[in-house]
Each structure stands twice: as structure tokens, then as C-alpha cells.
């Protein structure tokens, strides 16, 4: 596969003759698509099959009309507060994203443009902590949450989510500010703007695309977070989607509700699928800026 890819990297494929070599590339594209989509599609198919069709052997890949149902979805909303889970996830993710951009962008600007003592130390620290897995933080945070009585309070999620996304925000926004032409800021200074005014009136409007890029990433990370949400929120009505979905299976010992779990996974991933469909380019941009250029 690699040989073929490189070989034809910079040449146009005008070879007409039909050979196995020419098939390798379309085949690898198909493989990438299948590999990426199969688990999601299987989950979707399971979610719309009746319980009988789900446990039919051999597996049903093309259900007939009477094997289709939406009951797994209605069950999520009728028997469980699934709408609350979605709202909780949306609220926590949005709030922490806004907070993260509000705190992270000014810091990124300072690190990109202003000369501060210890700037390199700050950057090095920011770079290293992007690598810390959350399990290292959860014990200390658990104590903090207990001490401050923030258990079952969304702040117990919003503050850590803001923090875990700050390093990425700072790195992405900093690389953006570095690419911004300096002239604008210089002429603003000549016009007598101080730093804060200049940030508000000149820099911020130009920054909106980069803020969107960063915001999409932070939203995804916050929506997907599991261990803090599992530990700090125990009230059913306050749970976020990943935790709530993961706990559906554990609710009954005798019969695992495969269809309901599948429906929950479809609904829980749906907002992210939409985000990726619309903002693929921005996501790639942000990830590479955050990881590579930093």
C-alpha cells in the first residue's frame, strides 16, 4: 500500500490498463472508510432493530420492515432522563469552552507578543501538562471537591474541563497570534490604544476564526470526558452522556438492554458527528497547530 501511494504521489494517473496495482489504491480508500465507520454503523443498525432481531442468530444485517423499531429511542426518553443527560453535557461543555477561551486567549496573546520574564518556563509547563492523563489529577481533585462541597455541582466539572483544555487553547491561539501581522497592532498603539483596548477592538474581531477552531476542540474534549464526570457527579439527573450511557448496561443483571445501549451511543455521538461533518478542516487545523507547532 505504501509503495503504491508514494509512487503515484506526484504523478497523474493516466494509465489505462487494468491491473491489480491500479486496484490497490481504491481498495485502501475503501478500507479506511470501512475501518472508520463500521463500529458506528453496526451500533446504529442495532439501535433500530427489534429485540428479537438483535438476538437473532446468525446476525441480521438487512432487517425487514417488521424487524425495525424506534422503541429503543423512545425508551431512553420515557424511562430515563436522557434529555437531561444531553442538556447536562451541552451545558457543561459550552460553559467550560467559553471560560477556557476567555482565560486562554489573553494568556496566548501575552505569550506570543509580549516579553514576559519566565515566558519559556510557562510554555514548557503548558506543553508538558498536555501529556498528563486525568487519572493523575483525580485523587487531588476529589479531595478538593469534597472539601469545597462541590460534589454533584456542575462547577466540579466546568473548572477541571476548563483547565484540561487550557494548554491546547494556549498553544493553538499562540500559534495564531504569531501569524497575525504586527502592523495593525503597531498602528493601533500609535493611535493611542492601550493593550486591553487594542485587544478588544482590533485583535478580537480578527481572532474569531481561530477562536472557533479552538472552541470546537475544547467542546469535543469536554463532551467526551469520563473519569471526572464519573467521580464527581452521582445524582442521576446531573449525569453527562458518556457516564449515563456507560451505566445503562449495569442497571439490570439478567438482561442487558443491547438496543437501548446502542440507541444511547447513537444519540451521545450524534452531536459530535455533526461537528466533524461541518468542521473537519478546522479540527485538523487546530489539532496540528496544537500538537506540532507547539
Amino acid at each position: 500500500m505504501t509503495q503504491n501511494t508514494i509512487n503515484s504521489k506526484s504523478q497523474d494517473d493516466r494509465e489505462e490498463k487494468f491491473s491489480i496495482r491500479n486496484l490497490i489504491f481504491p481498495f485502501s480508500v475503501a478500507l479506511v472508510v470501512l475501518f472508520s465507520l463500521a463500529p458506528i454503523l453496526w451500533q446504529f443498525l442495532t439501535s433500530v432493530k427489534t429485540n428479537d432481531a438483535i438476538v437473532a442468530l446468525p446476525n441480521v444485517y438487512f432487517p425487514s420492515p417488521n424487524q425495525l423499531t424506534l422503541s429503543h429511542y423512545t425508551e431512553l426518553f420515557e424511562r430515563r432522563p436522557f434529555f437531561s443527560y444531553m442538556l447536562n453535557s451541552a451545558f457543561v461543555s459550552l460553559t467550560s469552552t467559553i471560560l477556557c477561551l476567555t482565560l486562554g486567549s489573553p494568556a496566548a496573546y501575552a505569550l506570543a507578543r509580549l516579553r514576559i520574564k519566565g515566558e519559556n518556563v510557562i510554555l514548557a509547563i503548558v506543553l508538558v501538562i498536555t501529556l498528563f492523563p486525568y487519572i493523575l489529577l483525580f485523587l487531588g481533585l476529589l479531595e478538593l471537591v469534597k472539601a469545597t462541597g462541590l460534589g454533584n455541582n456542575f462547577l466540579a466539572l466546568i473548572i477541571p474541563y476548563t483547565a484540561i483544555n487550557l494548554p491546547l487553547t494556549i498553544l493553538v491561539m499562540r500559534s495564531f497570534f504569531q501569524q497575525l501581522p504586527r502592523d495593525l497592532e503597531d498602528s493601533a498603539r500609535v493611535d493611542g490604544y492601550n493593550t486591553v483596548q487594542m485587544l478588544q477592538k482590533i485583535v478580537l474581531p480578527m481572532t474569531l476564526p481561530a477562536l472557533a477552531t479552538t472552541g470546537i476542540l475544547t467542546f469535543i474534549f469536554a463532551w467526551n470526558e469520563f473519569i471526572f464526570a464519573l467521580t464527581f457527579i452521582t445524582l442521576e439527573d446531573l449525569k453527562t452522556i458518556p457516564v449515563a450511557a456507560a451505566q445503562i448496561g449495569g442497571s439490570s443483571v439478567f438482561e442487558i438492554p443491547y438496543g437501548t445501549i446502542a440507541a444511547a451511543t447513537v444519540l451521545g455521538t450524534f452531536p459530535l458527528v455533526v461537528l466533524v461533518l461541518f468542521f473537519q478542516k478546522k479540527i485538523v487545523q487546530g489539532l496540528t497547530a496544537g500538537a506540532v507547532k507547539g
Partner: peptide
């Protein structure tokens, strides 16, 4: 490309359910 980045963007805990299945 869009499809290829989907797995990365989806919640790990939820996709773990899909793989269990």
C-alpha cells in the same frame, strides 16, 4: 478525510460500549 477523523472525535466511553457489543 472527514470520515477518517470521526473515530478520534467520538467519546471513548461510548465507543467502548460499541466495541463491547
Amino acid at each position: 478525510r472527514t470520515i477518517a477523523i470521526l473515530p478520534w472525535a467520538l467519546p471513548t466511553a461510548i465507543m467502548a460500549l460499541a466495541w463491547t457489543w
